[in-house]
Every structure is written in C-alpha cells, then in structure tokens.
Design a protein around this nucleic acid. Structure first.
Lengths: 107, 107
DNA sequence: CATATAAATCAAGATATATTGATATATTAA
DNA sequence: TTAATATATCAATATATCTTGATTTATATG
C-alpha cells in the first residue's frame, strides 16, 4: 500500500507531471537545464525531483557538481502505464534550454 | 491534464484505495453497508464516494433512499491498470456487513 | 586553503485536503 | 402531512503539501 500511495502521490501534482513529460521527451537533464527550460527556481525543482526519484520514476547520475536526472528504466507496469498516460496528455511543453552541455550554467 | 490529475488525486488516499478494493471484492454496496463494514462515519464515506465517482471510478444507482455504488464499467485503460494494481496490494480487508439486504439498516 | 558553482535542505507562510459533528435533502411509510 | 431513515452537504478544525528565500553541502578550481 505504501509504495502504491507514494507512487500516486508523486503523480498528484501538475509540476511533476510536466517534469515527467519533459524527461520523457528530452532524456537526461540536470537541475539547471530544468531551471532554464521550465522557469522555476532551484529549490522547487530539487524538491520535486526528490519526490519523483523516491517514488521510483527517476534516477540520478552525478557528474562533478551536476546531477543528471532521467526516467528510470525499466519502470514497472503501473509506472509505465502512468507515463504512457502522461505521454498522451495535451500539455504545452516549454522549449528545452540545455545549458549544462555548453558549460554556461550560471543561473 | 485535469482529468488525469483528478483521477490520480482520487487514488491518492488510503481510505479511497481501501474502498475501491472493497467494491472490487464485493460489488455494489450502499453507504450503510460501508459504514458497518469499514467502521467509518457516514459523512466521511459520502465525501470519498463522491470523489471516486467524479473521478470516474464509481457509478451510483438509487433504489428508494438507498444509493448503491459500484465500480463503473468499462473503465478506461489507466483506471483499469490502477484498479489492477490495487487488486494486488497487500491490504487487510474488513469483513463485509451487508445490512442493506436484510433491511436492518439503522446505523 | 579560499572561492565559486550546482544542488540539497531548511524554515515560514500559503494553499489544499481529510475528519468530525451538525444540518439539510430526499424518499418512504404511517 | 408527519415521522423516520438514508444520503448529501456544510462549517470548523486538524493535517499535509507546495512555494519561496535563505542556508548548507559537495565538488571543482585558482
């Protein structure tokens, strides 16, 4: 029950659904990429990333001071179905601003 | 997005997950059946039933003063998957107390 | 070591959701 | 119509969650 509720709670937020959709679309991203792309402050993103990670949706890979988050694979059945559902939602996705690659990250 | 978030929000509560599991196990039940079986007060159940109905999980059929709730069919893909997930959760289900059939409902 | 940067965490305030007890509504039966 | 019963709604309180700005931690570099 706890694992299910944690998974569902993670999905129960518009910001996190947008983030999942954004990762699904663009692959691995660091926090500063998300800051630039989604126009949200760092503490807010960091909190939501933690919730999504602890709910089993995301994984992190650290490279120096950067933390690259991406959708965890494989996802179990229910999480996959949730992601598939999110993939078909009519969401207006912001453009990707990939600062981490160009080394210009000073937001 | 709104429909998805409403569906997810409905799932994001231990009481409602238990109720869905109970309906899945026992079929149509009225509020007084649930009161007796789950040991919860009527206003609490009524509120959760409304949320589950408006999220597309339940339907109601009225017979006199009774309101019989049951799982709506057919459920769309994501709601079915959620229900399937709930079906496999390790939940301790209370025993069914079906007062509405015997006409003894005066809780 | 000292500084700079990316990310994580914390504290405070705002918003949303759940629970309870009281009241309102609707249907049935006398 | 009146009384009784099942359900729905409301008001108040408690609890949880989200957002922001400030602080802390960790890593890289001069």
């Amino acid at each position: 029950m706890d694992d299910f509720l944690k998974t569902v709670a993670a999905l129960n937020d518009e910001t996190r659904v947008l983030m999942l959709r954004f990762f699904d679309e663009h692959g691995a991203l660091c926090v500063c990429d998300l800051q630039a792309s989604l126009g949200m402050i760092q503490s807010r993103l960091s909190r939501h990333l933690k919730i999504l990670k602890e709910a089993g949706f995301l994984r992190v890979e650290r490279k120096g001071t950067w933390a690259y988050y991406s959708i965890r694979t494989p996802l179990d059945r229910f999480r996959s179905e949730a992601l598939e559902e999110i993939r078909h939602l009519d969401i207006e996705l912001p453009e990707l601003q990939k600062l981490s690659q160009t080394g210009e990250c000073t937001i």
